[in-house]
Nucleic acid binder design. Structure first.
Length: 450
RNA sequence: UCCUGAGUAGCUCAAUGGCAGAGCAUUCGGCUGUUAACCGAAGGGUUGUAGGUUCGAGUCCUACCUCAGGAGCCA
């Protein structure tokens, strides 16, 4: 094995090959697949940016190069030189006439690469996630994820939100609902991994005006579905003097920006992933996201039940179940914003609707195509007395919330914020069956290896 | 926590209660345009674990383990 400190002049990535047509380039990659036809080899190389097929006629190269490639094992690392040639037979439009090859590491015959190109089961792939990442589809998903994360941060950065990341180790539950991961914290008793940075960014919002946080969050819920991870990334904006309508407009602009950025940069990746791009183009097409009150959504579900389209009749006052959310979102091409849920089924910190105090000024954004809730947000209670009585009513430890109450004691203002789970957003935009493919190493109920 | 389903070769899966099989992968051989190439050959098994029924269990019964999908809860 050798390393090169200087960058060779003709170094290229596979993604950039089209700009080097007719020239000899140097690729650093891995052997992705190898086919042969007697004295003609077809090695396919990958380098993280894409794949390209090499052509190796026995008569055109040295015997050493031909024999090396003929006996090379899959996923061995190689440095290849070759001439870029346009060819209509190639899926990408280009092929590489191989001239030379240097094997960085040859995988021994006795220990072949465990993942084959053919189908494999979920259990096997997740056990080999560290290698599964090398497949074109998984690489494409991670590239789209990176763009979504960049676009999400960029949206708030360019709209004058200050990034203020909250602590990951917290002394108590923020909402008192979800199960938390617990750990010992020296002699101070227990600490918990954060399930949301919301309460903390309310504090930084009152310091800086408009803020956001972006980081990992943890939920020890025993949820075992295609939408749940125990560790996931959340981006949360919080802004002073922002009301519920303003919050919904913010969420709409935010999602539109993300989808636009993905469409700009990833048509090739989306094709590899198998996502129907026209569905995304509808998101950025002119027209507002539909806004649906809880009451209207309830009526929609009753109508659907009457027509036999959903199994269970929705009970007024209850939260929506997963099948309910799927039905609602399927009625629209764009994400739908359901607002003003009954206060009783929502968190203690949500501001009551002045027009109907039994309702909370909150919004859930449901992604299209049945991907469910990707954003949850609300206007926050800004009255000290009301917040205190809510904490009492929810049987939450008053001591732990003293600092949070201080935010209402000293210069309280109306303010709102939401949180978006990055993995659900990636799953929706890429059209994936499960969020486990949206993050390099998914943490789920039954799996913490590798 | 509850409901449902699945565990057989390295991987994906077959096998009416009656000889343990195929494709891919691996190894060897063939092929100058293959696109998860193709053709020929070889090696490869404690059928998740423990018990039970039976002349006979991969198959039926019981318990347990593991994984998956869903419900609830959530982003």
């Amino acid at each position: 094995m050798s390393t090169e400190s200087s960058t060779p002049q003709n170094l290229s990535t596979i993604a950039e090959l089209s700009s080097h047509e007719g020239k000899t380039v140097l690729l650093r990659g891995w052997l992705y697949n190898l086919r042969s036809s007697g004295k003609l080899l077809f090695p396919t190389f990958r380098d993280g940016s894409g794949t390209v097929q090499g052509i190796v006629p026995k008569a055109a190269v040295s015997e050493q190069v031909f024999e090396t490639l003929k006996n090379l094992t899959l996923e061995s690392s190689v440095v290849v030189t070759g001439r870029v040639r346009a060819d209509a037979r190639a899926p990408s439009g280009f092929e590489l006439d191989v001239e030379g090859v240097e094997v960085t590491q040859r995988i021994p015959d006795e220990t072949p690469y465990p993942i084959q190109l053919k189908e494999a089961g979920v259990d096997f792939l997740m056990e080999h996630r560290h290698l599964w990442l090398r497949t074109p589809r998984q690489s494409a998903i991670l590239r789209v994820r990176a763009t979504i994360m960049r676009a999400a941060a960029e949206f708030f950065d360019t709209n004058d939100f200050i990034r203020t990341d909250p602590p990951i180790l917290t002394p108590n539950a923020c909402e008192g609902t979800s199960e938390l991961f617990e750990m010992d914290y020296f002699d101070d008793g227990k600490a918990y991994l954060t399930q949301s940075g919301q309460l903390y960014i309310e504090a930084t919002a009152l310091a800086l005006g408009k803020v956001y946080s972006f980081g990992p969050t943890f939920r020890a819920e025993k949820s075992k579905t295609r939408r749940h991870l125990t560790e996931f990334w959340m981006i949360e904006p919080e802004a002073c003097y922002l009301d519920l309508d303003g919050l919904m407009s913010l969420a709409e602009g935010f999602l539109t920006h993300i989808v636009r950025r993905v469409l700009e940069a990833h048509s090739k990746d989306l094709k590899v992933i198998g996502k129907d791009v026209t569905k995304l183009e509808e998101i950025v097409a002119p027209g507002a996201f539909p806004r649906l009150s809880y009451d209207d959504a309830h009526q929609m579900l009753l109508d659907a039940h009457a027509k036999g389209l959903i199994e269970n009749a929705h009970v007024y006052g209850d939260d929506f179940g997963s099948p309910d959310e799927t039905y609602i979102s399927n009625q629209f091409a764009k994400p739908v914003m359901v607002h003003r849920y009954p206060a009783e089924v929502k968190a203690f910190y949500m501001q009551p609707d002045p027009g109907d105090p039994t309702k909370a000024l909150c919004v859930d954004v449901l992604a299209p195509e049945g991907y469910g809730e990707i954003i949850g947000g609300s206007q926050r209670v800004d009255s000290y007395d009301l917040l205190k009585s809510r904490i009492e009513a929810h049987n939450l430890p008053m001591d732990a919330f003293q600092w949070y109450l201080d935010l209402r004691k000293y210069g309280s203002v109306p303010h709102s914020g939401f949180g978006m789970g990055i993995e659900r957003c990636v799953a929706w935009i890429c059209g994936l069956d499960h969020v486990r493919e949206t993050i390099p190493f998914a943490r789920t109920l039954n799996r913490i290896y590798p």
